[in-house]
Design a protein around this nucleic acid. Structure first.
Lengths: 128, 128
DNA sequence: ACCGGAATGATAACGGGTTATCAATTGTGA
DNA sequence: TCACAATTGATAACCCGTTATCATTCCGGT
């Protein structure tokens, strides 16, 4: 049966508290602040388990490997900082997107990604 | 000095006539219809050269490796078929996209990608 | 037509992100 | 507390897209 381990709890809290999509390496680094011996393999295994449980979803951003965030967030899009490479949530969505496709195309999903400079990088250096 | 070779001409014509972004393997397959002995290394080398000459640009689509298309197309977005994995151009753009980001974020670019089923896959099987 | 260097094709090597392996550790029901 | 199976951490292996290597081919100026 599935066990309740310190690793899983820490990884879960990390994702919950991040407020933005995280990649495996980001999860590792943040979670290691609470559990220094955490290994990258455990992060990958746990992300896969959370995906299967549908507690998190994959976030695909152009030019980046997959990131992960809570599955129960309401529809939103993303902003990618070209300096620190972090991804942020954008709680807005252009209307009429589905009508952009030419006739004959069946639109099932849509992705919107903004790219630029995040507030942290704009002011000082990169964020954490 | 730079030479005019059959390979480069065929690859260029392939990209021009495709009417949609192509990945290296797609370029190879299509170009081989005119030049059967074309090798994948030449495709990569030629794409890199075209990029440096700014004759083509990179097209990043979520969940896919980079594709390439003519550099002089007017602003547009893309549709990705989840069945045949081909990418198509969408000559439309939602307005007000840059205003979606929260205050403090500097938007420099934006990506819009629609995902679904293309006309070919909707009717019969996969396209070419 | 000749020559020299650019370009090509086959394929090995590379790079990074992800997964598999396995001994050691650790929850958890009894 | 015990016993055992699930989980973990370190790391080797893997996957796959891209790049490097190198002998051979082929433009193009002379």
């Amino acid at each position: 049966m599935e066990r309740r381990t310190k690793q899983r709890e820490v990884i879960w809290r990390t994702i919950q508290q991040a407020g933005r999509p995280l990649g495996p390496q980001e999860v590792l680094k943040l979670a290691q602040q609470r559990l220094p011996n955490l290994g990258i393999a455990t992060v990958y295994r746990t992300l896969k388990a959370f995906l299967e449980d549908r507690r998190i979803v994959v976030v695909e951003v152009p030019g980046h490997t997959p990131k992960y965030e809570l599955a129960d967030l309401k529809h939103h899009h993303h902003f990618v900082c070209r300096k620190c490479d972090r991804t942020f949530d954008v709680n807005d969505c252009p209307r009429g997107i589905k009508n952009m496709a030419p006739p004959g195309f069946v639109v099932e999903e849509h992705y919107v990604a903004l790219k630029g400079i995040c507030p942290d990088c704009r002011n000082h250096g990169a964020g954490d």
